[in-house]
């Protein structure tokens, strides 16, 4: 089962309506959209698979909908984007 784990070498700061992730290794600062912020916050420190993350999202935000396709595949797409940014690790 593939696990998504938040990378430790980041600093996460929430402002009033903006969430920032400073990546210590690259020195880059990423601004998360509200959607990405919710997903990022739903990933536990020890990691979780997409199904567990979707469950956590629904527990906090209610029913999760996707603009296209099913919520699970839309979530995987976003998780992959967080992985590409280097702020989440993907462990197979």
């Amino acid at each position: 089962m593939a696990l998504y784990v938040p990378v430790e070498a980041v600093r996460y700061e929430k402002l009033d309506d903006l969430s920032l992730v400073f990546h210590r290794l690259s020195g880059e600062t990423h601004i998360l959209s509200p959607e990405m912020e919710a997903i990022y916050e739903a990933i536990p420190a020890g990691g979780a698979d997409a199904e567990q993350i979707l469950f956590r999202l629904e527990a906090v935000h209610g029913l999760v909908e996707a603009e296209e396709g099913d919520p699970a595949s839309a979530l995987c797409l976003r998780l992959d984007q967080l992985t590409e940014l280097g702020i989440v690790r993907h462990i197979s």
Binding site: R11, L15, D16, D17, L18, L20, F22, R24, G27, E28, T29
Partner: peptide, 24 residues
């Protein structure tokens, strides 16, 4: 808002990237 202020100051900073986390 704090977010607006962050975006303005971040753009106005000439060396934030160079300084890394202390700059952030």
């Amino acid at each position: 808002t704090q977010s607006e202020a962050y975006l303005r100051l971040s753009v106005a900073s000439t060396n934030q990237l160079t300084l890394g986390e202390p700059g952030f």
